[in-house]
Each structure stands twice: as C-alpha cells, then as structure tokens.
C-alpha cells in the first residue's frame, strides 16, 4: 500500500518536470521531503530498537543487573518481573536524595512513569557517561541502578 502511494507521488513529480512547471515542482520536492521524514519517524517509533541490555525489576526492589554497560546510541530495556509498580527515573529533580540520580553533562533526564506488573520501558542513551537512576516509589528502599555509556566505535 505504502509502495503504491510512493509510486503515484513519483509519477506525479515526473509529470510536473515534463510540463516544466518549476514552481509546482519545487513545492512537490519540499512536500516529498517532509513526508519522507514523517513516515521515517513513524516507522522508527513502531519498530523498537533491539536493546543492547535488558534489566529486570524485581519484588526484592532491585534492578538486575544493577549495572549495565552499553555504547552510545544503544538502547536499554527494563522489564518488570514484579507484582509491584516501579519506575525507571533518571532525573535528579525527582530524586529524594541527590546521590540517587546522576546524568553526564548534556544528557537529558528520562522518566518511564508507572510501569505496571509485567510492563516494560526502554530508553536510548546518546551521550556517553555514567547514568544513575532509581525507582520513585522504592528509592528509599535502595532501588537504584547504573547505566555506563561508552563512546560509540567509529
């Protein structure tokens, strides 16, 4: 279906070029570029990246493993193996204790919101450095994890 739509759009572009309608051709090119970006973004969202690491959240109030190491641009997936509601929160502004959250310079904070039993969450880490994150309801009970992001190999 998508392929057929693309075919129609391209044939329409060829027609515009043959007719030498320059103005309309420019508008067509711009629309084509915007559409391609939009479709590309949607496809990216619908197909989650394969995670470089998977971290389990448990009833013992732990992230397992508590520390994972990945490369910049890779993704970590957190899976709930717990009957409890947890969060994956890397945001110093939401931490009860400052030492429970840390981000490398330039990295944006992240927060999963409530992850129900059996649920999951994933986050792609673009900036190298050490990320310290926590579970909001169980921060006091020491539910804290670390993601080490190494520079991507060229």
């Amino acid at each position: 279906m998508v392929e057929r739509a693309w075919l129609i759009i391209i044939r329409f572009g060829e027609y515009l070029l043959k007719q030498q309608w320059v103005g309309l051709t420019i508008i067509w090119v711009l629309l084509l570029a915007a559409g391609a970006e939009g479709i590309g973004r949607r496809v990216g969202e619908a197909t989650p990246k394969k995670p470089a690491a998977v971290v389990k959240m448990t009833d013992q109030l732990t992230f397992e493993p508590a520390r994972v190491t990945i490369k910049a641009g890779e993704t970590v997936r957190w899976k709930s193996a717990s009957l409890l509601v947890h969060t994956v929160t890397g945001d110093p502004a939401l931490a009860a204790k400052p030492e429970d959250a840390a981000l490398p310079p330039g990295a944006k904070p992240f927060n999963s919101g409530n992850i129900k039993p059996g649920g999951q969450f994933q986050h792609t880490f673009k900036v190298p450095g050490t990320y310290r994150y926590f579970c909001i309801p169980h921060e006091g009970a020491g539910m804290i994890g670390v993601v080490v992001v190494q520079p991507a190999t060229t």
Partner: peptide, 20 residues
C-alpha cells in the same frame, strides 16, 4: 514518610526518607 531502607529493612529514626 517512608520508613523502609535498603532491602526493605525497617528504618531507624535517622534513616527515614522524608520526601516519600
């Protein structure tokens, strides 16, 4: 306030988390 600590141990007075 939150009165459990590492491993869900019941906290002593100086271990509570006041903002949870």
């Amino acid at each position: 306030e939150y009165v459990r600590t590492q491993g869900y141990r019941l906290a002593f007075d100086r271990e509570v988390t006041p903002t949870r």
